[in-house]
């Protein structure tokens, strides 16, 4: 019974962490699909979300909802500026060059945040209290519910957007074939910009809702970004639901690994899974293999 309770707790904790990975993974996939770039500055958007929210709450004394809005808008602006200044001018660069640029941008953003807001870890007050809730023998915090809720909402919204609106469909068209999309009159440049905007907003949102739980500082983006990247890889860098499942599986595996085997292997488990998937199923866990027509 006790072991069962423990496992329940591991799973619940894992799902909560996994939901965060899923959100970040989704924002990776959105940019990848419209540009073919793996944006390694994604983790910094998550960090920016948290840091900006805390800044607008403590220094500007804004109420939480406004602070969240400021954080998400601010990060979106950073994402858009980043695309305009660093991605767009290089029209014919190879994806590899672009990926390296994103790594450069991540170092720049991290450094600037460190200079502006210092190196201290900071914390956002929880949205709705700190009373632990009991659920099937395990405990979780109200903030976990926020994370689950926001993740669900984002999945639903992105499904709606990408499958049922003209703009969303246009963005997907770009991901299938940029040239053809261009030929039918879709402004690919605009779609790329939009993908950066959406993705940075999503990252920021993830950063804000986890800040009360995990705290934040200028350097939290690296690890979160990598874990989100793992989630996206598990989901095959595309299918919305695949990435979400990838994130949840990753979170639960980590938590079970830390709880049942040894906490020393926690990160090793995540990256082992990543490597295995890259070796065995590079198209992701839930995608059918792609066939190239010769």
């Amino acid at each position: 019974m006790q072991l069962l309770n423990q496992i329940m707790q591991f799973v619940i904790s894992g799902l909560a962490t996994g939901a965060i990975y899923a959100l970040i993974g989704l924002s990776f996939a959105i940019i990848f699909n419209s540009t073919g770039i793996v944006n390694f500055a994604q983790g910094e958007f998550v960090m920016l979300g948290g840091v900006l929210a805390i800044f607008s709450m403590t220094a500007l004394k804004l109420p939480i909802p406004v602070a969240i809005l400021v954080a998400v808008t601010g990060t979106t602006v950073v994402g858009v500026v980043f695309e305009r200044l660093a991605i767009r001018p290089l029209k014919n660069a190879t994806p590899l060059a672009l990926i390296i640029i994103t790594i450069g941008a991540s170092i720049l953003i991290r450094g600037m945040v460190m200079l502006l807001w210092g190196k201290d870890t900071q914390v956002l007050p929880p949205f709705s209290g700190n009373m632990p809730l009991n659920f099937a023998g395990a405990t979780l915090l109200p903030q976990h519910l926020w994370i689950f809720g926001v993740t669900l909402l984002v999945i639903a919204a992105s499904r709606l957007f990408f499958h049922h609106t003209i703009t969303g469909k246009a963005m997907r068209a770009c991901s299938f074939n940029r040239r053809a999309a261009n030929l039918v009159g879709i402004s690919v440049g605009r779609m790329v910009l939009l993908s950066f905007a959406i993705s940075s907003a999503l990252g920021a949102l993830a950063g804000v809702i986890i800040a009360p739980l995990t705290m934040t500082s200028y350097d939290v983006g690296i690890m979160l970004g990598l874990k989100g990247f793992c989630a996206a890889i598990m989901g095959g860098m595309g299918s919305g639901l695949g990435t979400v499942l990838g994130g949840l599986i990753l979170g639960v595996l980590e938590s079970l690994g830390a709880g049942l085997i040894s906490s020393g292997y926690k990160d090793a488990i995540a990256f082992l899974v990543l490597l295995l998937i890259l070796f065995i199923r590079p198209q992701g866990l839930f995608k059918k293999g792609e066939t190239d027509r010769v």
Binding site: Q9, F10, S13, A16, T17, L213, S255, A258, G259, S263
Partner: peptide, 14 residues
Amino acid sequence: TYGPKDTDMTAQLT
């Protein structure tokens, strides 16, 4: 043990 950048230690505490 836990990692210096870990954000959730409920597994160990459980």
